[in-house]
Design a protein around this nucleic acid. Structure first.
Lengths: 342, 342
DNA sequence: GTTAGCACTCAATCGACGGGAGTGCTAACA
DNA sequence: TGTTAGCACTCCCGTCGATTGAGTGCTAAC
């Protein structure tokens, strides 16, 4: 069977109506809702076809139809190609450029959640590929050294290193020069054991002590690379009974708290990034099982210097895709603006 | 009317039974539960008295009794003075000493939540009173300076400072000396505008540029003083219907996400700190209105060097106070141990 | 191909009903 | 005077059946 023009119109009408009301929609409603001027009986026939084709389902025999995952997928796909979304006006949108990345991200998550009334999450941009700008090792007291590493994008990492034996001023200076000449300009992912052992070799004699310090610096660089994720509006899920019935709320809240679980979503979204960077996952399409009754819309953003992160919105399948995608587009461009002329 | 010995026994029996079952408890149950050898009729009379005195209430006419807030309060108070709690064995309790405070705190929250099956929160110790150990200003590039401040307890703060005009090596060195001589050994709360302007004065001529830098350092020290709070086990609240019925879940989850709201609790707990540092808030006693159906148990902890923070456990009023308090005691001593010989 | 009509299905709602847990009160007992 | 057995009463809760109403599928006529 083929999805002809009329079927498409009816399918869209069903979905749009369901998005609004959250109730199964019957043939009579569609008969009046659309301007097709068809009787409910005709619509009934078409709807039976659509059901057979898998776009809509009946929750029980004598109820109206609701969209299946396949139906949502159709809707989202056609919607995405149809028109350029108008830019959504964000309520109280004030993104000031923050020194602290953390503050900015929390702010974005909050704005997005408030605006859409769904749950929002945002991952900090990964800095693997950012280059080291500056390294400094200083003595805090005889047994403690402080290593500070500044990376492009003004990301700062630091680490306190405990040493058994005091390092002479001369050696400290040498070490600083060594570290800077070897590591400056390298991206964090390029700094590997090979480079570190090369440095150790060049440092020569003092093997053990200096070696330890070099290792510690290497660790400081590698550390903290677990992706940080911030969430907001988790309690918006309570607006949608289909997400909170039967103890589903507990699972979802748990997932949002254990932010590591959200990682897979972030990864996938970054990987799939095509064109606009906006992705829609419906039900099982998302790689997180507790979200099987949700839809997830993700957008990748870029903060100058190639630092990429992901924003995600989680809501019921009957979410207002149009608005959500519009909001994400707006945020994308605002962030881009904010950091373009760094 | 007086709360005589027998009434106390009955009251405790009612409460203990209710804690176990979560069901209203009737006179017959108590008659068998206790070894008073009284008939249910006698118990009924006593229970009527207890109700009149406000220790227990009936959810409806023909139901058993449940403890009122006043009843819980009595129970907790007598329990606290009764005996030394035996030490609770924590499941999989492995607190390794972490370099990163954040990791340690998240770990503690998680352990506590898993152990008690309630929601847990923990505030990072405030560092107002910690003394500055080390300050360093370095040039990252001609327009950017990096300020690093190390505070007792190895708390590290840093800030990138943008300058309009390059600072000479000589001036940078002077500044470093100036900063260290003036600020080293002072606690963060002692560093105020007076001290900062004194430094500016001493710096003399270069007023504007150097003044700006000094201000920026001052800001870096003051910044980030909003208390950080970590939570875990939020979804444990779903184990207790009385906390999640009628949309209460949404409120509670919201409170846990907006961690700032938890601040008042932390403050109060730190302020009230008496003796053991353990506090119990029942219902309205807690300063957060979304917790009016909860009980909250807080404990202050100390990580050497006078860094104090608070751990809080939030659960239903019928929480297992005994276990919760035991767990908190154990955590307190483990943390103390961990940092005692710094 | 479209539509009116009709029988059918099934979830949701409502009221009636009975069981059960628990109470308060009274009267009898030690 | 304190304790207890007995009893009527209250009220929650689950079950059952009837009713309602929205919606469907099918058939026959247009």
């Amino acid at each position: 069977m083929e999805l002809d023009q009329r079927k498409k119109i009816i399918l869209k009408a069903v979905i749009r109506n369901y998005l609004e009301t959250g109730e199964p929609v019957g043939s009579r409603t569609i008969s009046k809702y659309t301007d097709l001027n068809l009787s409910s009986a005709t619509i009934r026939n078409e709807m039976a076809d659509l059901e057979e084709m898998g776009y809509i389902v009946q929750p029980h025999t004598s109820a109206g139809r609701i969209p299946s995952d396949q139906g949502y997928r159709f809707y989202v796909d056609t919607m995405m190609e149809e028109k350029d979304r108008e830019v959504v006006e964000l309520k109280e949108m004030l993104l000031e450029r923050q020194d602290k990345m953390e503050t900015l991200l929390k702010q974005v998550a909050k704005v997005v959640a408030q605006n859409t009334q769904y749950a929002a999450m945002i991952s900090a941009p990964s800095t693997h590929r950012n280059k080291v700008k500056f390294i400094q090792l200083s003595r805090v007291n005889p047994e403690q050294l402080l290593a500070v590493i500044v990376v492009e994008g003004n990301v700062i990492k630091n680490n306190i290193i405990n040493v058994a034996e005091e390092l002479s001023d001369e050696n400290l200076l040498k070490l600083n020069i060594l570290l800077n000449t070897h590591l400056n300009g390298l991206s964090m992912e390029e700094i590997n054991l090979g480079i570190i052992s090369a440095m150790k070799q060049q440092a020569g004699v003092h093997g053990s002590l200096i070696g330890e310090v070099i290792d510690a610096v290497g660790e400081a660089i590698k550390a903290d690379e677990d992706l940080e994720i911030y969430t907001s509006g988790t309690n918006n899920i309570f607006r949608y009974p289909e997400l909170t019935d039967n103890g589903k709320a507990s699972e979802l809240v748990g997932t949002f708290e254990e932010k590591q679980q959200l990682g897979s979503l972030i990864q996938e979204s970054l990987a799939e990034d095509a064109g606009t960077g906006i992705q829609v996952y419906i039900g099982d399409e998302a790689p997180i099982k507790s979200m099987k009754d949700c839809s997830v819309v993700t957008a990748t953003y870029e903060l100058g210097e190639g630092m990429k992160g992901t924003i995600g919105i989680v809501g019921p399948k009957r979410m207002d895709y149009d608005k959500v995608i519009g909001t994400l587009r707006t945020i994308q461009s605002k962030l881009d603006e904010l950091y373009r002329n760094e």
